[in-house]
């Protein structure tokens, strides 16, 4: 005698039609897009945060390329800056440091070639949080000590970068929302089609005493597997894409853009999120359709 476990054989034969078999593969590109969008959003947020943290309270002073005793000029500028209330530190960058700053943008060879020219003299100024000094005060003070010196306030160019990061995040969330909506719509369509296809069996289950919740459970378990599969494959493809993208661009193009461990953990939540979304959507769809039945 063959005993078939009730756990293994469901009354409604889901997953046996072409629609059933294709459905998980329809979820895959949506999960892929959602993962990439999430990665873009997290990377943009991380990068903006990193830039903000690195540059908050920092000002760069550039001294004119004039002849004479460069050391004396730098010392005068540093002394004038350090004398100001609200300035925590002022330090001139070495030629090597300036070259290293240029390397990501020019490449090592071009940056090295430029090193043979007189490099710009830059002074990195750290301000005290909430202190009295700001770019305008610094500019007046340093210009008195070294005529022609200019002050570059990082906040002035950080703002558009921050705006760009915010825009990237907005677009990423839009894509994520669209992908989520499309995935949910797919589950609704597939579940409705399955319910219509298996209406006879479902009506029989009702006749035998099944509750709407029991029937919904059959469909939601199937949708959960469908969502988990689509999410996992989509995640795998997206991770491969991100790794390939990182490998292709290297660290040169966007030195501060990357995904930290929390971001990778967030991406790992895509399959369970897809499974949960599919399960919930299927359940609500079934309950809504059944409520219209006699």
């Amino acid at each position: 005698m063959r005993w078939t476990s009730p756990q293994r054989v469901e009354a409604v034969p889901l997953g046996r039609t072409t629609v059933d078999r294709l459905a998980p593969w329809i979820i895959v590109p949506m999960a892929y897009l959602a993962t990439l969008a999430l990665a873009a959003s997290l990377a943009a947020a991380d990068a903006a945060g990193a830039w903000q943290a690195a540059l908050d309270g920092r000002v760069t002073v550039q001294l004119p390329l004039a002849g004479g005793d460069r050391g004396a000029v730098v010392d005068a500028a540093v002394a004038a800056l350090e004398a100001l209330p609200g300035v925590r530190a002022a330090r001139a960058l070495t030629a090597e440091e300036v070259t290293r700053l240029l390397e990501p943008w020019l490449g090592p060879e071009e940056a090295a070639a430029l090193a043979e020219l007189p490099p710009p003299t830059l002074i990195d100024v750290t301000l005290e949080a909430g202190g009295a000094a700001d770019a305008a005060v610094l500019e007046v003070a340093v210009a008195e000590a070294v005529p022609g010196a200019t002050v570059a306030e990082h906040a002035s160019w950080l703002t558009p970068v921050r705006d760009l990061a915010a825009t990237v995040r907005l677009v990423a969330w839009l894509v994520l929302g669209l992908a989520t909506g499309a995935a949910a719509a797919t589950v609704v369509a597939v579940t409705s089609a399955e319910l219509t296809m298996h209406r006879g069996v479902v009506e029989l289950l009702h006749a035998l005493g099944a509750t709407d919740g029991y029937v919904a459970g059959l469909f939601q378990r199937h949708a959960l597997v469908m969502g988990a599969f689509g999410g996992a494959v989509g995640l795998a493809l997206a991770v491969a894409t991100l790794v390939a993208l990182g490998w292709a661009t290297g660290d040169a193009a966007l030195p501060e853009v990357g995904l930290g461990v929390p971001a990778w953990l967030a991406l790992a939540l895509v399959p369970p999120a897809a499974a949960g979304l599919a399960m919930l959507t299927a359940r609500l769809t079934v309950l809504k359709v059944l409520a219209r039945w006699p």
Partner: peptide, 24 residues
């Protein structure tokens, strides 16, 4: 009859019991 085609005779008969919450 409305028997479920992909289920065995045994599973068809046990279906009402499963729906009633009994364990196999």
């Amino acid at each position: 009859f409305r028997l479920i085609g992909h289920l065995s005779a045994l599973d068809n008969v046990t279906l009402p019991l499963r729906l009633a919450g009994f364990r196999d």
